[in-house]
């Protein structure tokens, strides 16, 4: 495994997770969460778990983002706290 690529992926995962937690605009937070999920999936694919990675991409980055956007369309877009 290429350790530079793995290190860069860990760094990007950390950045996207902190971004998803700190953003006030919830749609943007969902986008950051989908990015986080996609990066985790590419890390899993690098480790050789292609099956888990496929599930993570299909559910974590695809369907969960759509469901969360659908949920936010029923409430207000900006977080209060």
């Amino acid at each position: 495994m290429i350790w530079q690529l793995e290190f860069a992926l860990y760094f990007l995962i950390l950045i996207s997770a902190v971004t998803a937690l700190t953003l006030r605009d919830l749609i943007a937070a969902i986008a950051a969460l989908s990015t986080y999920s996609f990066l985790v999936a590419s890390l899993l694919a690098l480790m050789g778990a292609v099956d888990v990675s496929l599930t993570e991409v299909a559910l974590g980055a695809g369907v969960t983002g759509v469901l969360l956007v659908g949920g936010i369309s029923l409430m207000q877009r900006r977080s209060i706290d």
């Binding site: 292609v50 099956d51 496929l54 599930t55 299909a58 559910l59 695809g62 369907v63």
Partner: peptide, 11 residues
């Protein structure tokens, strides 16, 4: 190959 029922249904 990688894949299966769950992944296929989700995609």
């Amino acid at each position: 190959s990688p894949g299966g029922g769950f992944q296929g249904g989700a995609i």
